[in-house]
Simulated assay, not measured.
Amino acid sequence: MCTTKELLALGYPVYVLADGVSSCNKEEIPIALRGLQHAGATITTSESLMFEITADAGSKEFKAVAGLIKQSKDMTREAMSTLCKI
């Protein structure tokens, strides 16, 4: 298994899902994300990545993803507020 920085050094594009990052010390999360971004990683969210992967807003896949995101918006908001507090 490779770390983000190892993958970047090998030339791979790396996407880090901010809403999937945790730490015993919540204050460390934004510092770590800034460091990874500075190293070349793209910091994004699971929602943004899902829309980017499905790309075409007219496709059935995009509409299915949009429906899932709408259904889970309250859980996502709660998770983001818990994981991404500074």
Rank of each mutant, 00 (worst) to 15 (best):
C2A: 07
T3C: 06
T3Y: 08
L7H: 04
L8S: 03
A9Y: 12
A9N: 13
V14A: 03
Y15I: 06
V16Q: 00
A18I: 05
D19L: 04
G20W: 08
G20I: 09
V21N: 04
V21M: 02
S22Y: 05
C24P: 08
C24D: 14
C24F: 15
K26G: 07
I29L: 01
P30I: 02
A32W: 08
R34C: 08
R34I: 10
R34T: 11
G35Q: 15
L36I: 06
H38C: 12
T42D: 04
T42G: 10
T45R: 00
T45L: 02
S46V: 15
E47F: 10
E47G: 02
S48P: 02
S48K: 13
L49E: 10
L49M: 14
M50T: 06
F51E: 03
I53W: 13
I53V: 07
T54G: 00
A55E: 11
D56F: 02
G58E: 08
K60Q: 04
F62A: 01
K63T: 02
K63C: 00
K63E: 03
K63A: 03
A64S: 05
A66P: 01
G67H: 00
I69S: 11
I69G: 06
K70F: 14
K70G: 05
S72C: 11
K73W: 13
D74V: 11
D74L: 08
T76C: 04
R77V: 11
A79Y: 07
M80V: 08
C84Y: 13
K85W: 05
I86Q: 14
I86R: 12
